[in-house]
Design a protein around this nucleic acid. Sequence first.
DNA 1: CCTTTATTGAACAAGCTGTTGATTATTGTT
DNA 2: AACAATAATCAACAGCTTGTTCAATAAAGG
Lengths: 201, 201
Amino acid sequence: MSDKAADRRVIRTKRMIRDALTELMEEKGFEGITVRDLTEKASINRGTFYLHYRDKYDLLEQSEEEIISGIRQLVNNIKPKEAVSFTSQDEPFPIILKLFEYFQENASFMKVILGPKGDAAFQGKMKELIKKTFFQKIAEDLKIEEMLVPADYLISYVSSAHLGVIQHWLQSGMEKSPREMTLILTKMTLYGPGHVAGLKK
Amino acid sequence: MSDKAADRRVIRTKRMIRDALTELMEEKGFEGITVRDLTEKASINRGTFYLHYRDKYDLLEQSEEEIISGIRQLVNNIKPKEAVSFTSQDEPFPIILKLFEYFQENASFMKVILGPKGDAAFQGKMKELIKKTFFQKIAEDLKIEEMLVPADYLISYVSSAHLGVIQHWLQSGMEKSPREMTLILTKMTLYGPGHVAGLKK
DNA sequence: CCTTTATTGAACAAGCTGTTGATTATTGTT
DNA sequence: AACAATAATCAACAGCTTGTTCAATAAAGG
């Protein structure tokens, strides 16, 4: 955009600052981080930080925005309704699969930002993104009179559930593959908690 | 415990500090709050703050812990399985009902602490509490071989969903009654998203 | 090779923190 | 109503972080 292909030094510096951010958030949470901490961990001069970011909030914002826009690119023209046919054939819904792979690539940052030392605002944004991308589109052609609960609460329910499962996956060491996770997630929503628990026939 | 019935001045001071905390978190988030802000908004001397709290983190911790232990008292010997019979008769499960009433009483603090300017760690603790109180007990007598997904992911799914619905209720102005909310919540879990959406017969 | 640009290092005022000691005000109790 | 105990106030302190600036140095790219 406004940046022409940046100097190698700039790329290096920014990468080191962001790595430091991830590590320090893991250690003490964003709250406790000072610009000093960041620049010491990144082995750069404190003044250099201010050449790239207004303050630590600006750094966090840019880091988060990069992730968000990365996700947006993956899901831009998704058709959520297709999930049904994939899932009922035990095939992972491709876009959700790609999402899990994207989280895996950015695992260290995603883990901390979505974890207990992370940013509640970011978690809110993620939930909002899930709502808009997946469930509000599905909800459009539901018939209100047939619904047992208000649509907005249903959407909140499934969106929060999905984010929560992603969080659990990240926090517990990502032992399932993206493919497995996609199936787990879509099955629970499609068939419902009671059914996947084996309580109903 | 260690406190004997406290001086009226102490009660007054602490209440004003906590009210200030809630308001200031709403305004600028916990991050941005200084002890100065708190004591100015509470109209007390800055030194007085330190007579009651070690620092602003101590204040947050104590405020959160009070809520958590309030919840624990409500749910200490709950039998989650009873929810099924209540819900299928369209009667709200009493303990969940009490929980919503408790949230309503503490609405201003709950709203901000569970909102986007709130504390991700607290949201994690709430989720953990929901897991332990409700769903791990149910999960004990599920047969693993009959489950379509791993138990821990199912538990994360429903626990996150429940917290998410509570958050949505608080953020959107608590327009439904605790009684309505209890039914909405338990129905979604019992019958599943697909069914309550009116998709299945 | 040489111009451009990034990084360094040092210094600055301003603001917040947590503590202390002396003083004043409010409580709870005889 | 009087008094002793305790809470709140006020001012001052060193220590730390912040964001900015300037001159000097180092690295990149054409």
